[in-house]
Write a protein that binds this DNA or RNA. Structure first.
Lengths: 334, 334
DNA sequence: CGTTTCCCTGACAACGCTGTCACTCCCCGA
DNA sequence: TCGGGGAGTGACAGCGTTGTCAGGGAAACG
């Protein structure tokens, strides 16, 4: 900027004015300065600007695994919303480790990101005192944290689970099992609890089969096989997220059996696998968008009490809930 | 930092030394400073550090659409590699628009990111003079740019295409069509050209059916329907990327026909759809990793000539190449 | 013709940190 | 006793911007 100033025979301040399109620069001065800028290829150093102004125009997204479609869709939405608002997005993975999450968060705070969208790794509050002391607004997504109320955007897990169970019951299933992901995850636990309570509410057989993860295709194959060979066999399964659904599909394929199935999370091709899979759809793009909206409200000074937004889910009915058809499960146990 | 210094009765410089674990601070001084830091919750302002030191410890990834699994897997790999090297990752979408890409790139240059990994939107070089003048190292991924040679990581498209065509031919197909994505994309064109030349080399019928995108399920349904009703019907299709494969699968489902199929890009569940889909697999994680490796080599001063790395592809054989079985395609045209 | 007003412009400090260099001790050996 | 050397510390400048304020010239006014 100093170079430009010298070359254009003006002060740095005037160059700054031109660069920022501030008013109060004579037309010909502005043109002269612009000419020099183009000629020598000057580009403003945003780092210095930031240092001076205090706002980094940057928000960060911390997720577990950016390669998981659920999170990458959230990421795409967050990036788009940030871009619309002239902010850049830093993405970071905590890989499910609270320790790593703390390190990551501290790094981001040090960078003075203006705000954070976080899928919390652990369930304990991320109340690293330094993080909360920094005053950086945080919106949690997909899972809440304990402790102080915080801005949070989650899915309606009980509602989704209710629609899943009711759908299966409507198709005649009574022995319905739940296969959840790792019970360490809040979502996994919440869905399990929802499953249990709805199961009871509907008066289904009391000894519901439940298996929490982590699961592999192999472990699930064994488990589903056992369940289907019981005296009163399980005829339908609800899976707790996209990872589990995938493993369950592979397991059923390996077993060569067809059980009723409702999966949590929609996935590409859910309509193309055989049978097509009925799912509880949560819209990651909307979740991400909502989170950013809330975050920017805070950035613009919204001081209202922390808010938890519950996003509705939608049951997408395909074929897998109707199985087995007509009653082939009986065949497994003559 | 000044506050800490005053509180601990030392100079700012000493605080700086403690924060950075520089040697030459007496043990008790260090402890005293650390105590104050913890007490008042001081966190270093990385912006200022960056301004002083010149390196931002940040790299950026510019893709078309972060929600596309191919890119999000690249993104996850790039983020991991960056994190390993103590760098943060800024992700940005250009949404396929060269104009937006320029804006995005300039923004990132202004931020003084240390390096860029870019999936170029247009094919013309991104030789925005300001961008190249900035001297920021760039590694292009998935598609090359014209003009000056640049560091690039791409897939072995001709090799992948060859394996696809040969696979289909080995299963008796002679009338093989290619359905590529938008011809604006270099990858789409390169795969088309590879298809044509291999098609010729193998002495297949000269009038190969080729359709470039963009495609929708509807448009492809019509197209595939036409092809399968020709006098000498197309019996197998090669699709140019994951988007197209998806549309083709839906189209075949809509038509109720089964054609031979080899898709470009592997996808989750490719083994579970009916029929399971044979694909040319490119490993996005490796591509992303390789790109970051190259980028950091440049950051560490590697001055060797620009390098184009061609990543091998792998044909994952499933069922869809064997179709139709035995010749059901004929049924469509009695 | 002097005074006020407005429009441009520039000097300077400050944002928060780190590199450089100089200074003060204290210990050692001569 | 004195000089040399190393360890610990601090003063200060400067990274590239922008906010503040003051200055200077031209136009407008009395």
């Amino acid at each position: 900027m100093a170079d430009v100033a010298q070359e254009a025979h003006v002060s740095v301040k005037t160059v700054s004015r031109v660069v920022n399109r501030e008013p109060g620069v004579r037309r010909d001065t502005e043109l002269r300065v612009r000419g020099v800028i183009d000629r020598i290829g000057f580009m403003r150093h945003d780092g210095a600007r930031i240092l001076r102004q205090g706002r980094t125009q940057t928000i960060a997204l911390v997720v577990e695994d950016l390669a998981n479609p659920f999170y990458s869709q959230i990421g795409a939405a967050v990036e788009r919303e940030a871009r619309i608002r002239q902010h850049q997005l830093i993405t970071a993975s905590a890989e499910g480790s609270p320790t790593r999450e703390r390190v990551v968060l501290e790094g981001l705070i040090n960078r003075r990101v203006d705000g954070l969208v976080v899928v919390p790794a652990g369930e304990r509050p991320v109340s690293d005192p330094t993080v909360s002391a920094s005053g950086t607004p945080i919106v949690y997504v997909d899972r809440p944290v304990r402790g102080e109320p915080c801005d949070t955007v989650i899915s309606d897990n009980p509602g989704g689970m209710r629609s899943a169970v009711e759908h299966l019951v409507a198709h005649g299933h009574r022995r319905i099992a739940f296969v959840g992901d790792n019970a360490e995850f809040w979502t996994a636990r919440q869905r399990r609890e929802a499953f249990v309570s709805i199961h009871e509410a509907l008066g289904l057989p009391g000894d519901a089969r439940i298996a929490m993860g982590p699961h592999t295709t192999e472990s699930l194959t064994e488990r589903l096989g056992d369940w289907s060979r019981e005296r009163s066999p399980v005829t339908a399964v609800i899976t707790g997220n996209n990872r589990v659904t995938l493993a369950a599909l592979h397991a059923m394929r390996a077993l060569g059996i067809r059980m009723g199935l409702v999966g949590y999370d929609d996935f590409e091709l859910a309509d193309l696998v055989e049978p097509s899979v009925t799912v509880v759809h949560q819209d990651p793009a909307s979740i991400g968008q909502k989170a950013v909206l809330q975050l920017f409200a805070r950035l613009l000074g919204d001081e209202s009490p922390a808010q938890t937004v519950v996003m509705p889910t939608r049951l997408i009915v395909r074929e897998s809930g109707r199985l087995p058809d007509p009653t082939p499960a009986r065949k497994a146990h003559p």
